[in-house]
Amino acid sequence: MSTNKITAASRKDEGKGASRRLRHAGQVPAIVYGGDVAPQSIQLDQEKTWVASQHEWFYSSIMDLEIDGKVQRVLLRDMQRHPYRQLIMHLDFQRVSENEVIRVSVPLHLVNAETSPAGKTASVVLTQELNEVEVACLPGKLPESIEVDLSNMQMGDTVHLSDVVLPEGVELVAKIDDEHNPAVAVARHARVEAEPEADEAAEGADVPAAKQDAEEK
């Protein structure tokens, strides 16, 4: 499991006014909480944080959060964005303990789709129905993503969540049974739309010749 690092600074000013001033200064107000330590208000560089937020790991991986030179291991738990500007309004980070089980939504990545029997068939379309799944594990076992192997997928096949092979030490949070076993990937026939000329000819063929003459007159 790779480690990603982000840098922050502690802050004392709180409230809406202080957060507004931070944003105008190119900073992101945030808070880090959890563990045996009191919640701490922090601030991060807006531009650097925005760049980090474009990566998948920012949302599903444990990060090293450096605050005033001291590192804490955290997970992103909430992110507020501006409704239409490329601007992060606020972030919530949770401290993690190596000995405590955490629950995190992890991305699902489809692999070997192109080499599968379904993927090699021109008339078949492979679609991903589920993009992420919530898992429970110790921090040291948390995967950045979970691969779903489609190498044996045939036309008409459906890969369900129960078919996904989880890494060692990782469990699904949701219970899988006959009533709850969502599809992860499906191989379907591609829809072929009829050509307009053929449709028009067919419509004309259904109308009696006498009626067509009357309509033309």
Rank of each mutant, 00 (worst) to 15 (best):
E129K: 13
V124E: 02
S145G: 09
L142K: 03
V135L: 11
Q128Y: 03
E147V: 10
L150Y: 03
V125D: 11
S123Y: 04
E144H: 08
V125A: 13
A118G: 11
P117T: 06
L142A: 04
V124L: 09
I146T: 06
T121H: 03
T127N: 09
E114T: 08
T127P: 04
Q128R: 07
T121W: 05
E114K: 12
P117W: 00
L126M: 09
C137Y: 08
L142W: 10
L150N: 06
E134V: 15
G140L: 04
A122Q: 12
P143L: 10
S123P: 00
L130I: 08
V133W: 03
L138T: 12
V133C: 08
T115Q: 14
A122V: 14
A122E: 14
E147R: 11
E134N: 11
E144M: 09
I146G: 03
S145M: 14
G119Q: 01
A113K: 09
E129W: 01
Q128S: 05
L150P: 00
C137K: 10
I146Q: 06
S123Q: 11
T121N: 10
E114D: 15
S116H: 00
E134C: 07
S116R: 01
V133R: 09
L138C: 08
P117G: 05
T115D: 15
G140R: 14
V124P: 05
S145W: 04
P117F: 00
L126S: 05
L126I: 15
P117Y: 04
T121I: 10
K120C: 05
G140M: 07
E132S: 15
E134D: 09
E147Q: 12
T121A: 13
S145E: 13
V135C: 07
L126G: 05
E129D: 14
D149Y: 14
Q128I: 02
D149A: 01
A136T: 12
G119Y: 00
A118T: 01
L150M: 12
P139C: 06
V135G: 01
A113F: 03
S145C: 08
K141M: 13
K120L: 14
T127F: 00
S123K: 13
A136P: 05
V135N: 05
N131T: 09
K120I: 03
K141N: 15
S145R: 06
T121L: 14
N131M: 09
L130H: 04
E147A: 09
V124D: 01
L150S: 02
E147N: 14
E129Q: 15
T121D: 12
D149H: 02
D149W: 13
A136W: 00
K141V: 04
S145N: 14
D149P: 07
E129A: 15
G140I: 09
E129S: 15
L130N: 03
L150T: 02
V133L: 04
A136H: 02
E114A: 06
E134Q: 12
S116E: 01
V135R: 07
L130K: 12
G119T: 04
T115R: 13
V124Y: 06
V124M: 06
V133K: 00
L142V: 01
E129C: 15
L150Q: 04
L142G: 07
D149S: 06
T115H: 08
K120E: 04
V135I: 10
L130A: 02
G119F: 00
V135Q: 12
K141G: 08
V124N: 03
S116C: 07
